[in-house]
Amino acid sequence: MMGEPHSAAIQLVDQLEGHDDRAWHVAWNPKRPILASCSADKTVRMYHYHSKSTTEEGGSELVFAHSTTIPTGHAKTVRAIAWSPSGKTLATASFDSNIGIWAQDEDENAGDTTGGDAEWECMSLLEGHETECKSIAYSAGGNLLASCSRDKTVWVWEVHPDYDFECMGVLMEHSQDVKCIAWHPTEEILASASYDDTIKLYLDDPSEDWYCFATLSGHESTVWSLAFSPDGRFLASSSEDLTVRIWECVQEHKWECVKVLEGHERSVYSVSWGKGKGTGDGSLGWLASTGGDGLILVWELSVASPAQGGGKSTLSEKTIARLPSAHDVADVNSIVWCPREGYEDMFSTAGDDGIVKVWQVKPN
């Protein structure tokens, strides 16, 4: 595999330093040119980016600049962050068991797409988890927020005006620490991954509460990360067992494993599924993974033959780019594609070295 030729290369765009401890997670603002990162140092750092012309004819490069640091006030590590779909609100999940909701004074930023200079303020503090919060995510519609914790629970919150949040359900389906949650890109379906080696899928029952409608088993160890495909038909999961699994919705409320991806030599801590810039027939976008081996892999996934009559589809995968030692000898904790149009080939990583890096996938 080491000598396998790849159709693209992963190039470093920028290296963003400043955290005093390990960097856990990164989040791209979906509407504005802002990248946020969080750390064991209890802060959130934000960077603005823009294109700058180069000396080459018609050439340009992306420039990132640190804009602000939020001293969150969390008593412990900030483990995860999530932007609302509007890009106006940022949620922080901390090992102190609390969730912070952050926003700026909109009057001070009128007409400014970059976020301006207005300070980020904590508008709400959500309490309820008994111990470390591990992951947090807004639904695609922005009306729901989900959180998960070492206390084995998943909470679903309804988002109300004026930064008011109402708990709509406490899901206690996992038998161990819940590591990650992810929302379906178009439907109100929530997925969670756990130390108990399983993935749970949840729906809201109009007549009752949120409930688990499926348990996905197959991983042989902790499931660390989840990512739905951009079209919502598939779900990727990464694990301590060194694999990435692809699950397909083969019929309503039924998901089955259709592909197992290998290539990592240590725990796969993070997986992200973006639209990418693939143009082949049946392309499902680009899937990126990273973890304890410091390796970044980028696959292009395609549907080779669609499912017939509720059966499984046949997927084909191609490793289009591979980069070892992305953060030197440090573990890489998070990898996230930029969701903004025009930046589909750009992603960011966060490592145990406290550094955040921005990368671009470029054809060879």
Rank of each mutant, 00 (worst) to 15 (best):
D41E: 08
V13I: 14
T69L: 05
G18L: 04
M46F: 05
E61A: 14
R45I: 05
D21N: 10
Q11N: 09
S84M: 06
H25Y: 00
G58C: 10
S53E: 13
H66R: 14
S67N: 12
D96E: 04
T43F: 00
I34H: 11
D41G: 13
Y49N: 15
S84N: 15
A75Q: 12
L35Y: 11
H25K: 10
K88M: 14
T55P: 07
D41Q: 09
I70Q: 11
E56N: 13
T92I: 01
A40S: 14
G18V: 09
S94D: 07
D41S: 08
A75W: 03
I10D: 03
G58M: 09
R22L: 12
V63H: 11
W24H: 13
V13N: 05
G58I: 05
A65E: 15
P33S: 13
I70D: 06
I10Q: 06
Q11A: 07
D20Y: 04
A82S: 14
M46D: 02
A23D: 09
V13C: 09
I10S: 05
V26C: 09
W83I: 06
H25D: 06
A40N: 03
V44M: 07
R22G: 11
G58D: 12
A65W: 02
S84D: 15
G100R: 11
V26S: 06
R45G: 12
S39N: 04
A40G: 14
H74A: 03
Q15I: 04
K31S: 04
M46S: 00
G100I: 07
P85I: 03
T68H: 10
G100E: 06
F64V: 11
A82E: 10
T69D: 03
E17W: 02
R79P: 02
S51I: 00
S86L: 04
G59N: 08
R79M: 07
D96S: 07
K76H: 12
H74R: 09
A75S: 12
L35M: 14
E56D: 15
A9V: 09
W24F: 11
W24C: 10
S60F: 13
Q15S: 15
M46G: 03
A93D: 01
W24P: 06
A91D: 05
P33H: 12
P30I: 02
